[in-house]
Design a protein around this nucleic acid. Structure first.
Lengths: 140, 140
DNA sequence: TAGTGACTTATGCGTTTGCATCTACTCTAA
DNA sequence: TTAGAGTAGATGCAAACGCATAAGTCACTA
């Protein structure tokens, strides 16, 4: 077992442990964590996002994302309008309700994240962000 | 946005990017990555594993894991026998076929992992393992 | 400008998931 | 020894998922 494999396994375990921990918290209202993630990704970009672009940031197959956006649109959280420049595409934006919901859930969730990572020193946080950043940049 | 939140977001992104990358590789045969993970977790422990113990290492709900083990047992990869010490419980072991399949997939997968993490220095690998280890230990 | 291949999103369909609940067993203590 | 609380895993069911593919659009070329 190489160092790389140990590191990856450790990363996966941390992801799994923390995900379960966050999921168990009673802050998600009528959203699943995956749905929240979609709203969060949309909230980060001010401009409208293409479906394919959003799909790059979310761990979901393209059809699954398509349908999830469908449901979020039905529920009034997301606005999907045709892209005038490319009629194949769609432009996604948060509705005011979607933005409000994202903020309402995001706030306590951000506190949970801070609490969960509070076992790390500021230097370790810095290192973690730098190293994982390097990993995701390496291949996109 | 605190350092902690940035670090967590960066970790999630790395997880998502690498997972997609690994999933896209043509090495999984008739298994999904989740199924492979179950076989892998079983392969790590020599002794038989309880369902609940296995569930702690896998990002799946208890019923989903129960049924996945069901299917893996049907397919001859996993042996589930009643725990003599606790008749509620089950003892899970890899069958020879399960172990062989795990190794067959694990080998190229381990190489992929090594390749994907090769952008990191040995020191960074060390730090990543240490930091993520700290994260998952903090709450179990 | 008609044809071909690439790209973007949607849909059909069988499988898998999570939630709630159930059954069966264990443990504690009266 | 037995009632009641707790734990382990299984099952019913609706919702969500991934794979394969369809439908519509773009871009390039003959």
């Amino acid at each position: 077992m190489t160092r790389a494999n140990e590191a990856w396994e450790s990363l996966m375990k941390a992801y799994s442990v923390l995900m379960k921990q966050f999921n168990a918290e009673d802050i998600w209202g009528d959203l699943t964590m995956r749905e929240y993630d979609v709203l969060y990704q949309l909230s980060k970009c001010d401009g409208p996002l293409r479906m394919s672009e959003l799909n790059r940031h979310v761990l979901l197959s393209q059809p699954a994302l398509s349908r999830m956006v469908d449901r979020l649109a039905d529920r009034g959280y997301v606005d999907r309008c045709p892209d005038p420049g490319d009629r194949r595409g769609v432009r996604l934006t948060l509705t005011p309700a979607g933005r409000a919901t994202q903020r309402q859930i995001g706030s306590p969730h951000a506190r949970s994240v801070t609490r969960a990572l509070s076992v790390l020193t500021p230097e370790e946080l810095e290192q973690l962000a730098a190293i994982t950043g390097k990993l995701s940049q390496s291949e996109e």
